[in-house]
């Protein structure tokens, strides 16, 4: 973990409520896709934990969905604003376990960390299948970006306005060779994906209301089959066999 100042370079709207933010700064503490940053906002006491979409040695891409006052404030910031950021938080996805036929499953804003993950998998010679789910076509984003990487991409929308009608689980079932999932999205999606028999194993990224974001306050602890885990420090990625779903309501 590192605490440093980042500069907001650019904001690009992706949908009516989702934005892409490019920040420049010291990214040396970031070690794996699926990690997150915790951003201090003027006038808010708690920082805002935001998943890392992608990063290079000098900049950081975040995808932010406006869900409340804090995220609204974040996307309203003017380019040039300096932000106090804790970077490189959480465990991140472990690509080494994913085998030759991984599928990356994302729902809504949960798509964000899968982009940096897919890019690194491709760099390492694995072509991941990417399955993304949205409510409707107007909510979809980052499809061109995933296609440009060279992923095998499939999309599902709940109303059928884009791709398969239904959920991301349908996309996974349509790729029966994929046996390992790396997933991020809303709880019902994660749970449905977790239950698919074709998946021998997988990694699931969880959200939590956090106090500190670096493991000190025990605000986000959940029970797992491997004992109590802090979503911020021991997660946000939990492994298929250790998740106790009753914990998450």
């Amino acid at each position: 973990m590192k605490k440093s100042l980042f500069t907001l370079e650019r904001i690009r709207p992706l949908t009516a409520d989702t934005y892409e933010l490019l920040l420049s700064g010291d990214t040396s503490a970031i070690t794996a896709p699926g990690q997150f940053v915790n951003i201090e906002l003027p006038g808010k006491f708690l920082r805002r934990p935001i998943s890392i979409c992608d990063w290079s040695s000098a900049d950081l891409t975040l995808l932010v969905k406006v869900v409340g006052g804090g995220t609204q404030e974040l996307v309203d910031l003017a380019p040039g604003t300096k932000l106090d950021v804790l970077s490189g938080l959480g465990n991140g996805f472990d690509r080494s376990l994913a085998g030759a036929h991984p599928i990356l499953a994302g729902g809504g804003i949960g798509v964000a960390p899968l982009y940096g993950l897919a890019r690194r998998m491709l760099q390492a010679g694995t072509v991941p299948t990417v399955a993304l789910g949205f409510r409707m076509a107007a909510d979809a984003f980052y499809l061109e970006e995933f296609e440009a990487l060279g992923c095998r991409l499939s999309v599902a929308t709940e109303d059928g306005s884009l791709g398969t009608r239904g959920f991301v689980t349908s996309c996974i079932q349509a790729a029966p060779a994929c046996d390992y999932v790396l997933a991020c999205g809303p709880l019902p999606m994660l749970k449905a994906v977790h239950g698919l028999p074709q998946l021998r194993d997988g990694q699931f990224s969880f959200e939590a209301r956090m106090g500190c974001g670096f493991g000190a306050c025990m605000g986000c602890t959940v029970p797992t089959k491997n004992g109590y885990k802090r979503v911020c420090k021991d997660g946000p990625i939990l492994y298929k066999e250790e998740i106790i779903w009753d914990t998450f309501s």
Partner: peptide, 23 residues
């Protein structure tokens, strides 16, 4: 002690609420 169920944290003006429950 495991402490209390989630969520345990809420924000408020000038501070935060916690109900970690002595984990």
């Amino acid at each position: 002690r495991l402490g209390n169920p989630q969520p345990r944290i809420a924000e408020t003006a000038g501070g935060m609420l916690n109900a970690v429950g002595l984990q």
